Simulated scan of single mutants.
Amino acid sequence: MNYNDQEDYNRTQRFDPPPNNKKNNQSSKLKTIALVIVGALLGSAISLSVAYLYLPEIIEGRGPIVGDRAPIVLEPQHDITVYSAVAEKAMPSVVGITTVTTQVDRFWGPRRAEGLGTGVIVDERGYILTNAHVVGDGAADEVGVLLYNGDRLTAEILWYDNTLDLAVIKVEEEGLTAAELGDSDHLTVGEIAVAIGNPLGLNFERTLTQGVISGLNRSIPISQTQTIDNLIQTDASINPGNSGGPLLNAKGQVIGINTAKIGTGEGLGFAVPINTAKPIVDQFIEKGEFTRVYLGIRGLNVEEFEAATGERLQAQSGVYIFEIIAASVADQYDLRTGDVIIGINNTEIESMGGLIRELYRYRPGDEIDVTVLRNGGEEIISLTFNEDSTS
Rank of each mutant, 00 (worst) to 15 (best):
N217G: 11
E156A: 14
V189A: 13
I222Q: 05
V135P: 03
A178M: 09
V143Y: 07
L181E: 12
V212L: 14
Q210P: 11
E173Y: 00
S184C: 10
Y148I: 10
Y127M: 15
L146F: 08
E180A: 13
I196G: 13
T227D: 00
E173R: 10
G150V: 04
S214R: 11
T188G: 04
P199N: 15
G175R: 07
I192T: 13
L216V: 08
L231H: 02
L200G: 09
L166S: 02
G201N: 13
T227Y: 01
G175I: 12
E142Q: 12
V145Q: 01
T225Q: 13
N131D: 04
A140K: 01
Y127S: 15
T177N: 10
L176W: 08
T154Q: 08
R152E: 04
L153Y: 04
L176N: 04
A195Q: 10
A140Q: 03
G144I: 05
I196P: 01
E172N: 01
R125P: 01
L200N: 15
T130P: 04
A195G: 02
G138T: 13
L164G: 04
A132K: 14
L187Q: 12
S223V: 15
E191W: 10
E142W: 08
A140R: 11
D183W: 02
V145D: 10
D161M: 11
N203T: 09
V143F: 11
L202H: 07
V145T: 08
H133S: 07
R218L: 15
A132T: 10
G190Y: 05
N203M: 02
I169E: 01
D161S: 07
Y148F: 12
L216N: 05
D151G: 10
E205Y: 02
D185M: 06
A179V: 11
T207I: 06
E172F: 00
N149S: 04
D229Q: 01
L187E: 00
V145I: 03
D141M: 15
G215L: 13
I192Y: 09
T154I: 09
L202R: 12
I228L: 15
L231Y: 07
G211I: 12
T177R: 03
V143R: 00
P199E: 15
G201H: 12
I213K: 14
L181H: 06
Q226A: 12
G201P: 01
G144A: 02
E173F: 04
N217V: 05
P221Q: 07
G150Y: 07
D185V: 10
T163Y: 04
R218I: 15
K170M: 05
F204A: 15
H186A: 14
G190I: 08
E205K: 15
I196Y: 09
N198G: 07
V171D: 01
L146E: 05
E205T: 10
L147F: 13
E191Y: 05
L147H: 06
I232R: 04
L166P: 02
E174D: 14
T130V: 06
I220T: 06
I222G: 02
I192F: 05
D137T: 14
G182N: 07
G175D: 02
A193T: 08
E172D: 09
L200D: 09
W159G: 02
I213C: 06
P221S: 06
L129H: 11
L200F: 08
S214I: 13
H133F: 02
R125V: 11
V189K: 08
N203S: 11
D185C: 09
N230V: 06
G201F: 02
L176F: 06
T188K: 00
G150P: 10
G190C: 00
P199W: 14
G126R: 13
T163D: 04
R152G: 06
